[in-house]
Design a protein around this nucleic acid. Sequence first.
DNA 1: CGTGGCTCCTGGCGGC
DNA 2: TGCCGCCAGGAGCCAC
Length: 259
Amino acid sequence: MPELPSVEIFKRYFNSTSLKQEILSVDIRNPEILINVSPKELENRLISREFTGSRRYGKYLFSHLDNDYFLILHFGMTGYLKYNKDTANPHTRLLLAFKEGNLGFIDVRKFGKIGLTRDVKQFIKDKNLGPDALDIDSKTFIQKFSNRKGQIKHLLMNQNFIAGIGNLYADEILFQSCIHPLSKADKLSRDKLKQLYHEMIRVLNKAIEYQDKPFSLPESFLLPHRHHQGECPQGGPLEVIKVGGRTTYYCDECQKLYH
DNA sequence: CGTGGCTCCTGGCGGC
DNA sequence: TGCCGCCAGGAGCCAC
């Protein structure tokens, strides 16, 4: 599930539920999803502490503790947060207990990751993440893409190139920009790249505004139609292909191939 | 650098 | 109904 808009929603959810209360217990149910840290250390750093805030970078959430550490959360394909009294969900991988309720990191497929760091900048550097998609400026964006020969969709989804965009919103951004997903980045004019940049920002903000429910977006968006036998908002069939191994929907009428 | 394939893991769905 | 293959909003690794 989680692309940048979902993680932004998770951040707001986390901030509204889990700040400024003591962590009473730390239940690590699936130690295999830990990175950078042993179960013992994670427990020691979390227990009896409080969260003071959080920040998002790309698809990562960094939850700040009152001991200068950050809990790192990455949600994989199926991860999300749930704050309630329930402790019985079989897909809960980490459960933090507070006085008033529990924060669960739920993740059916276990592609998510949980870690710990004192230095978010260094973590981002070690992971070699590109600039955050909602933070990059137009000039840098155009410069980066105009120097690359790869497929435009592949580059949009490459976290080392630009961080935050996944398979669904890549399709939406390219549809809104009228660019065929297999177009070569360096064949797009500067004006076209500028348009792509603005559509990226607009789509991501719109997705956040709509609580990251892609199928509830207005009819003029691709995502509500992105399913078997779905039709382009302008009319006509949607094409389905693979790009970089990922299922891709686009409209052959609306989206021009630059190559 | 670019591209394609495979892998991790689990569950839901369509087809037979 | 029951079983099977395929697919899923991520990403690392490897080969050419």
